[in-house]
Computed example of a mutant assay.
Amino acid sequence: MLIDSSNDAALWFAVQRLYAAEARYLDEEDYERWFALLTEDLEYWMPTRETRFRRDEAPPDPQRMNFYRETLESLRMRASRLATGTAWSENPRTRYRHLITNVEVFPAGGELRALSNFIVYRHRLEREEAWLVGRREDALRTVQGELRIARRTVLLDQTVLQSKNLNVYL
């Protein structure tokens, strides 16, 4: 996804194309192509959510419990488990559908700040279904003329996950 930083519409379109490709790669479990969309110094974070009274709300704290606190290396290691035959929760495979919407893009220094909403549908076996819904905040960076995801914060709307596992990338 080559970008033209002189045009807001071109930036938005480039980010939209990046997210569409990312969703397809994740749905198809094409992790090598997904990894190519990430920077080497990736920070991938999904904190747990708490339901609090408005007066007690606080921003997520990385020192508290997280669903994910990953790097590119740890994501590669997690994905490599699928080839080992020991990932019993993914045999037979889960079917995914990533829907990305409400994309907004803002220049932020030498990077881009991108906000988006997502719905991820998961279906496994005959009766296991799960919906994950939330928002993402990304820092995007140009690497060798291509747009890449450098940091991602994922905020689920759910505070309690009904899914049997979290073998999904958002």
Rank of each mutant, 00 (worst) to 15 (best):
R95M: 14
Q16W: 00
F53W: 09
E90S: 06
Q144T: 07
N91Y: 11
V168W: 05
A150T: 00
A150D: 02
R148Q: 02
N165Q: 08
L115I: 07
M46Y: 00
A20F: 03
R49M: 09
E32G: 10
V160L: 08
I149V: 11
A20S: 08
W45A: 12
T86R: 13
M77I: 11
A20W: 01
V168T: 07
V160C: 06
I149K: 03
R55E: 15
R78V: 05
R69P: 02
V133I: 08
A108N: 11
L147H: 00
T153K: 12
T51G: 04
R69N: 07
P62H: 07
D4Y: 13
R97E: 04
I119S: 08
N7A: 15
V103R: 03
D56F: 10
R52P: 01
N91P: 15
M46W: 01
Y44V: 02
D157T: 14
A14K: 06
L147C: 05
A79C: 09
D138I: 15
D61I: 12
D138A: 08
R135G: 14
R152I: 02
E57W: 04
G145H: 09
R33E: 05
R76G: 12
V154L: 06
V168I: 11
I100P: 02
F35R: 00
T159E: 11
E137H: 03
A114V: 06
Y44L: 05
